[in-house]
Design a protein around this nucleic acid. Sequence first.
DNA 1: TAACATTTTTACCGGCTGGTCAAATATTCA
DNA 2: TGAATATTTGACCAGCCGGTAAAAATGTTA
Lengths: 240, 240
Amino acid sequence: MSDIVKDSLPAIPETAFGDSGAETGTADSRAEIGTAHKQKTRIQITNEAKILEAALEVFSKDGFRGATLDRIATAAEMSKPNLLYYFSSKEDIHIALLTKLLDLWLAPLRNLRADGDPREELSLYIQHKLQMSRQLPRESRLFANEVLRGAQHIGPLLKENLYDLVNEKAAIIQSWIDAGKLAPCDPRHVIFAIWATTQHYADFDVQIRSVLRRDDDDQSHYADAEQFLTTLFMGQLVKD
Amino acid sequence: MSDIVKDSLPAIPETAFGDSGAETGTADSRAEIGTAHKQKTRIQITNEAKILEAALEVFSKDGFRGATLDRIATAAEMSKPNLLYYFSSKEDIHIALLTKLLDLWLAPLRNLRADGDPREELSLYIQHKLQMSRQLPRESRLFANEVLRGAQHIGPLLKENLYDLVNEKAAIIQSWIDAGKLAPCDPRHVIFAIWATTQHYADFDVQIRSVLRRDDDDQSHYADAEQFLTTLFMGQLVKD
DNA sequence: TAACATTTTTACCGGCTGGTCAAATATTCA
DNA sequence: TGAATATTTGACCAGCCGGTAAAAATGTTA
């Protein structure tokens, strides 16, 4: 494993919860009702974090429809009605979770710099995304589940935030193409390909482990993946 | 679109059902009980096909847990008990469907020839896989859903059939590496990368359409995808 | 057509699901 | 402390879920 490179990447937080930030979406949690934002209680903060952590665990495993409030409540170590005291519905939890994690999920792409070297920027992006697949597989599967189902809960977010971000960064890649540093192509497909290849290692984990005969806690193939993907995207796979 | 290339690829059947072949799995359908294989009735054949087609539609949209027997029955234009006359349980339908489609799904990889030119063989594989994403997105999402959930119903198939096939084809790629035609790497990651990038266009369809602002029936981006992926895997993306 | 096998339907069931309600308990703060 | 507020709980519900049983209807074949 390339620890040197790993250290050079932005740190990925162990838990994405516990930070501030208001809920969004269709239904506000009880504490958010009213026009004025009331100060959150200590208990509120910790319990909402516990619920979102539990929801991440359950939703990422079973998908939205497969998940049950009972299981989330059990995982959060509280009763179901108590859970519904903090979030008004199952949908509400799911939307809050996705919304809160979307920024974290898109952070690597945000780091793509126009003034950097194309090779270095793309390599860093791949490494960062791969690191997230390894360290945050639940988040990856959460989004995979949601998008597979047609993005019924974050459709608007995709059409606004994601659209803007991708096209902003695609412009950077386009400038590299214009400078003759990349082959002419729709730069958005470059981004798609990096998403696909890196997230694949989290989303299709079981399949990969079946083919590679890797135990559940064995992550040694990530080093191979990083080297291979770098080679692939740097145009050094096929030789003349 | 490259119709020339498309025509050169093996035809993909409109419907994968209606062919012969016994069910496998834990629970046999009613008609399969007993040691001797009874001849299937006309009605049996058509109804089982209708059920599997309906199940593909529903399972690929909602996943296993999100799908309901009522919805499958409605889609198959029959009553729920009638449906359960042909398949003994929801699980039974799901397993029968996955088992029956697995061969179709792996066909492109089976076509990889050792005696072909690496560039040509890989290009063909990418094109064939991409064509399947475009024409059989439901099948793609069916498998994506199943693997995301930990492959609880086709775990054994992955550890046997898929393992064997991938490693057999990986040996071919390895021979190309040994011949100096490809950069040294674990050839199984080459296969993973092709799976990931091509299936991404079916599994993350909504996301892609959000970013590209494509209507539901607009598939024009597949041409771009094919050209880009070919460029990528042929090592012509990044220039010196 | 009569005897038989196959297919379909109607009625039903227990368990789980998301969610409600009111009462009980814990916490905060004047 | 005590009143006000925030939190937790247990009891409950209507609707949906996968699945069953048995009879009715349909098809097959001698």
